[in-house]
Simulated scan of single mutants.
Amino acid sequence: MMSAVEASERLIELVRGNDDIANHADGCDAGTMAAAESALGAAFPPSYRRLIEEFGTWDIAGEEFLGVYQTLAMGVKLLGSVAETLDARSKYGMPSDLIVVMFDGMGGLVVLDPSHVDQEGEYPVLVWNPGVVDRENMERLGDDFGSFAYSLCQRAVTRWRESG
Rank of each mutant, 00 (worst) to 15 (best):
V133F: 00
H24E: 01
A73D: 15
L109A: 12
L66K: 08
E53Q: 15
R16V: 10
L98R: 01
L72N: 12
K77E: 15
E37H: 02
L86I: 09
P130V: 06
L66W: 08
L11S: 04
G131I: 08
E54G: 03
A34D: 13
G107T: 07
L78T: 03
I99E: 03
M2L: 12
L86K: 12
L72R: 14
W128L: 04
G142S: 07
G80F: 09
G146S: 05
L51T: 09
E84N: 12
I99C: 02
Y92F: 13
A88D: 12
Q119M: 11
N137G: 05
S8Q: 02
G146R: 07
D134L: 07
G121F: 09
R135N: 01
V110Q: 01
G164Q: 14
Y92M: 10
G17Q: 04
I21G: 06
S47Q: 07
D59G: 10
E37L: 01
E120P: 00
F145I: 09
P130D: 03
L152F: 09
G62C: 05
V15Q: 02
M94K: 05
D104L: 02
D19S: 15
H116Q: 14
S90A: 13
V117K: 14
Y150C: 02
M33K: 09
C28K: 07
E84Y: 10
T158W: 11
G17K: 09
D118I: 05
W128M: 04
D104A: 02
G164L: 11
T32F: 00
I52G: 01
D113Y: 03
F65W: 15
G108E: 08
D113W: 04
P130M: 04
A7G: 05
D143Q: 14
L66R: 09
L14M: 07
A7H: 10
R16N: 13
M102A: 15
M74K: 15
V76Q: 14
